[in-house]
């Protein structure tokens, strides 16, 4: 390997940056749907309805107990065998939403349980419905408490999105692999570039998370 090998970086950078755009977009949408799924599942797991509770508990245990890679392959390679064909981006988005939903639901559940039951009782005693109490009183407090763990979950998701390269989603890792193959080498500068691109996103994010944690610790 020679020092001049690093000059490949400016050459590959435009493609890698377009891959980064896909990484950000797909993570963003997965996070969004994951949050929706996670909140609904988190609430369902706390419900008195045994069927709902059992169903969602099974979902969480299955997703957390199996590798993301398996889930991804099932959705992209196995679903077509029963007639469901999803393009790579959509398959990736579906898999990551389902996966993230399970982890987020645990965070949401913990956040809700950390709120004193007197809060819901006060809301109910004022004539609010269970859902109004959740929406206006419990969830706002719970979400404030779970911002840091949610932030960490999103950082994990951002990094894990690199797995989507194996189902040909045109994100950072996919382009890195393509470049290495096309140029027959340059693995070191290309993968270092890929790593740095992820770092450029995750470092500021974890800084924000740490700041949120400190804000909470101060109790304001």
């Amino acid at each position: 390997m020679e020092l001049s090998d690093w000059l490949v970086i400016p050459e590959i950078l435009p493609l890698m940056l377009s891959g980064l755009k896909v990484t950000v977009v797909i993570t963003f949408f997965s996070v969004l749907t994951g949050l929706v799924i996670g909140t609904i599942v988190g609430l369902a797991r706390l419900s008195d309805n045994r069927f709902l509770c059992g169903l969602t508990t099974a979902y969480v245990e299955i997703i957390r107990g199996t590798p993301l890679m398996v889930q991804l392959f099932l959705i992209y390679y196995a679903l077509p065998e029963i007639g469901i064909h999803l393009p790579p981006m959509i398959a990736g988005w579906v898999a990551y939403s389902i996966n993230s939903g399970a982890y987020v639901s645990e965070v949401v559940r913990g956040g809700i349980q950390s709120i004193d039951s007197g809060q819901m009782e006060a809301a109910r005693s004022l004539g609010m419905s269970w859902w109004q109490g959740m929406r206006y009183v419990v969830l706002p407090q719970a979400f404030r408490n779970i911002m840091p763990p949610l932030g960490n979950e999103f950082i994990m998701l951002l990094k894990d999105s690199s797995l989507m390269a194996v189902i040909a989603v045109p994100e950072v890792m996919r382009y890195a692999n393509l470049m290495v193959g096309r140029k027959g080498g340059y693995a070191l500068p290309i993968y270092v570039t890929a790593g740095l691109l992820y770092l450029a996103l995750t470092l500021p994010l974890s800084l924000v998370v740490r700041r949120a944690e400190r804000g909470l610790a101060k109790g304001d």
Binding site: D116, G118, E121, A122, A123, Q141
Partner: peptide, 8 residues
């Protein structure tokens, strides 16, 4: 309530 239960 004894513990007020205001919404903080």
């Amino acid at each position: 309530f004894q513990s007020f239960n205001l919404f903080p």
